[in-house]
């Protein structure tokens, strides 16, 4: 038998997705993958907000998720633009090869 979906299960999924996103930013070397990981983190937070607003029987959490989606779209557009500008000058999106600034 499949158990009924509970809000705390959503929270666990959200935490797993957030961890994947955070590890993606830290571990992966491809800038595009890093952008995707940031989006993953933002989306997992959306899931968190929705789950909490189910627990509290409130609507604020759902609304917040909408705001976050809008901002996330703007943010990824800017990020992609920056990656393209970088690719034009350096011809690479590998973060290991982007090391002109250091002590």
């Amino acid at each position: 038998m499949i158990p009924e979906l509970q809000p705390w299960m959503l929270l666990i999924v959200a935490m797993i997705v957030f961890t994947i996103g955070l590890l993606g930013v830290i571990v992966r070397k491809n800038l595009l993958i890093m952008l995707m990981s940031i989006e993953l983190m933002l989306n997992s937070v959306n899931l968190c907000f929705v789950a909490f607003s189910r627990i509290h029987h409130l609507v604020e959490g759902d609304l917040t998720a909408l705001f976050v989606m809008t901002v996330a779209a703007a943010e990824s557009a800017v990020g992609l633009g920056l990656v393209i500008a970088l690719f034009r000058t350096l011809r690479t999106v590998d973060s290991d090869q982007i090391q002109m600034l250091r002590d």
């Binding site: 920056l82 990656v83 500008a85 970088l86 000058t89 350096l90 982007i98 002109m100 600034l101």
Partner: peptide, 11 residues
């Protein structure tokens, strides 16, 4: 935009 260091800083 034509300076790689500026792009690196932005990223």
């Amino acid at each position: 935009r034509n300076d790689a260091r500026s792009n690196e800083a932005a990223i």
